[in-house]
């Protein structure tokens, strides 16, 4: 199911502001790619261009190519709705639908895609919640509101919701930044399990986390405030953290700035 993503010459703008400049990289399937870099370097913006969520913001636009295997996500006849169906996303803050039960939250995406049979829904909801390591905690209260769960549980619910529609890529925008250490650990374990099936891209502020969960790491930086963010380098995580090619990466990793 997992697909390779190839990005070439990608620019993103907020109105007149040039947010990220000329990014090209390849994201490998069935692996975890981490985006690191100082605040405001455009890593989250870049992530949101991969499922066309960037353009949801008024005035925002994107130039360049994002190939999912052999299809350009920004092709003229491509519907962003279809893109988001295959490129799932987990947000910084858990955002379950407040008016829906746990079950309905997970089933939300399935219902959109025409899955109506109760037995099929039940099966996929269970599978997704198990996949998100949440099943045992919630199986007795599936009809309770999703908003009643703890922060870490809510985030796993959001992951279950995202994987229920069996996307090919899973984007995670600092998924642990609002969580306590134990919940963070649970999510990191989950990421390690999910990578056997999905192409995962995770934005993180936490370098230890990047080192723990990712196979490849991309480092982003900005030249100064108001300047667009740039990709400095992307390489195997072990190499980035031990022997990066760029001086800027090394400075950042060793804590000399950022």
């Amino acid at each position: 199911m997992a697909k390779r993503i190839e990005i070439s010459g990608l620019h993103a703008y907020y109105g007149a502001v040039h947010a990220i400049e000329d990014i090209s990289m390849t994201v490998e399937p069935r692996s975890v790619t981490a985006f690191i870099g100082p605040s405001g370097c455009g890593k989250s913006t870049f992530l949101r261009t991969l499922n066309r969520m960037h353009e949801v913001i008024p005035g925002a636009r994107v130039e360049g190519k994002v190939m999912l295997d052999d299809e350009d996500l920004y092709g003229s006849d491509v519907d962003p709705v279809a893109v988001r169906r295959v490129v799932g996303m987990v947000f910084q803050r858990p955002n379950p639908f407040p008016t829906m039960s746990i079950y309905d939250n997970v089933a939300a995406g399935l219902k959109l895609n025409g899955v109506r049979r109760k037995s099929q829904l039940d099966e996929i909801v269970e599978r997704s919640l198990k996949g998100a390591n949440l099943w045992n905690e919630v199986k007795d209260r599936l009809s309770r509101p999703g908003a009643g769960l703890s922060g870490g549980q809510q985030q796993r619910l959001c992951i279950a919701r995202a994987i229920a529609v069996q996307p090919q890529v899973l984007l995670m925008d600092e998924p642990c930044s609002a969580l306590d250490p134990i919940s963070t650990l649970a999510i990191e374990d989950l990421i390690a399990e999910l990578k056997s099936q999905y192409t995962i891209v995770i934005v993180t502020h936490n370098m230890q986390q990047a080192a723990r969960v990712s196979d490849r790491t991309a480092f982003f930086n900005i030249a100064g405030t108001g300047k667009p963010g740039k990709l400095i380098e992307i390489d195997d995580t072990s190499k980035i953290f031990t022997n990066p090619s760029e001086k800027a990466t090394e400075d950042y990793i060793t804590g000399r700035f950022g």
Partner: peptide, 15 residues
């Protein structure tokens, strides 16, 4: 309406 929920729906591939 929280933007987070609107984005969650969009990201699920909702029209």
């Amino acid at each position: 309406v929280p933007t987070a929920n609107v984005e969650a729906a969009l990201a699920l591939g909702a029209t």
